[in-house]
Simulated assay, not measured.
Amino acid sequence: MQSRPFGRTGHTVGEIGFGAWAIGAAWGKVDDVTSLAALHAALDAGLDFIDTADVYGDGHSERLIARVLKERGGERPFVATKAGRRLPAQTVDGYTVANLEGWIDRSLQNLQTDCLDLLQLHCPPTDAYYHPELFDHMDRLVERGKLRHYGVSVERVEEALKAIEYPNVASVQIIYNMFRQRAADLFFREAKRRGVAVIVRVPLASGLLTGKFRADTRFEEDDHRRFNRHGEAFDVGETFAGVPYEVGLAAVEKLRPLVPEAATLVQLALRWILMDEAVSVVIPGARTPAQALANLAAAELPPLPEATMSAVARIYDEDIRPHVHQRW
């Protein structure tokens, strides 16, 4: 797998990482034995970037990662986590020094480390990006050795553009996939110009881009694809990338003929993301070893031909753009 610079941090990371939300919670039943095996398989295959958060299973995801890394020993992969969603209500006033330090200390304990590689503010309210003192707090935490770098995870392109005005924001995590393309219009170019790493999440539109779902697919009660279908629990853009389910299913059928020989729709979707050099790493989730290895195999696909890229753009413009483009 090819590596890419992780912004201006001095690190390089493999272009496909491991998104660890699904092994924590909110994606149906979690089997820890299988989750641990998935992490081991990915690391055995050379993966070196893992993304998690303190609220994924109330720390369960972080603790599973720590367990795997302890079992393996040796050089640790780059582990990014997030903080802020433990607030009962998302207000700027909640991002105090005391709260930030408390969340970070909890993640340090969960991950069994003395310094976080990357701490991301976890989709804070838009107003937070207009409070320089919040980013000053993060600078102080770096100076104190609690974390090496910090970044933000955003919902909206506008938030990403504002965040990278702060000189020490090392990374931005944002939704980008064949069904959510706006980030590439301006933000990707600005991030690259400023040396900010870009972490792409929800690359498969919550599984829509696996091609495995049908109109009658039933999701479990504790799966956000059921309980957040209309944004009942958090931003609806996190579920199916904000695309109405039936609209997404129809668009997937138009994408199927574009899949390269001996590849899968998942691999096409991931390789499409990697076609943009502004992307530092894409973090698909995996709950089994087979899923983890299939994700990594996408990096082995050759660059997609211009005809494929044009076809994806056309499907987006005709079927998806009206539903999502200006919302996020």
Rank of each mutant, 00 (worst) to 15 (best):
A191S: 09
L270S: 07
L293S: 11
R193D: 12
E253D: 11
R327C: 00
H11I: 06
E75T: 10
D31Y: 11
R218L: 01
I174A: 08
N177I: 01
S107V: 12
P257G: 14
L304F: 10
E62M: 09
A290L: 09
R214Y: 03
E158P: 05
S153V: 02
A41C: 05
D136L: 04
D136A: 10
H230R: 03
L296D: 13
H60T: 12
R63S: 15
I320L: 04
M178D: 11
L255N: 00
D105S: 11
L147K: 00
G46K: 07
V13A: 13
L274I: 05
S310R: 13
V324E: 01
S3W: 10
L301K: 11
V282I: 01
E318A: 13
L270M: 07
D222F: 04
R271L: 00
A191R: 06
R72Y: 15
P244H: 01
Y56N: 07
L69D: 15
F135E: 05
A278F: 03
G94I: 03
K29Q: 14
H60Q: 14
I174S: 09
E253Y: 04
A83Y: 05
A38M: 07
V196I: 12
E190W: 06
T308C: 12
R314M: 13
V247Q: 00
L116H: 10
K162Q: 13
P125S: 10
A251Y: 04
G145A: 05
R229K: 00
I175M: 11
S153P: 02
L293M: 09
A20V: 06
W21A: 13
N110D: 15
H122V: 07
L209E: 05
E75F: 04
L64C: 11
D216G: 05
P244D: 04
V282G: 09
R148Q: 11
R8V: 04
I199R: 06
A307Q: 13
F49T: 05
T96V: 09
D276G: 01
L87R: 09
F179H: 01
Q120K: 07
G19R: 03
L87G: 07
E15V: 00
V92W: 00
S310G: 10
A22K: 00
L69K: 04
E190C: 08
T81R: 13
L141H: 03
E306C: 03
Q267F: 04
D185T: 01
V324D: 01
N295G: 06
H137E: 01
D317E: 14
R271M: 01
E75V: 03
R193I: 03
A170I: 09
R67K: 15
V252S: 03
G74Y: 12
P284E: 08
R4Y: 09
L296V: 04
P305Q: 12
E159R: 08
Y129L: 04
A286F: 11
R189L: 12
D31V: 09
N110I: 12
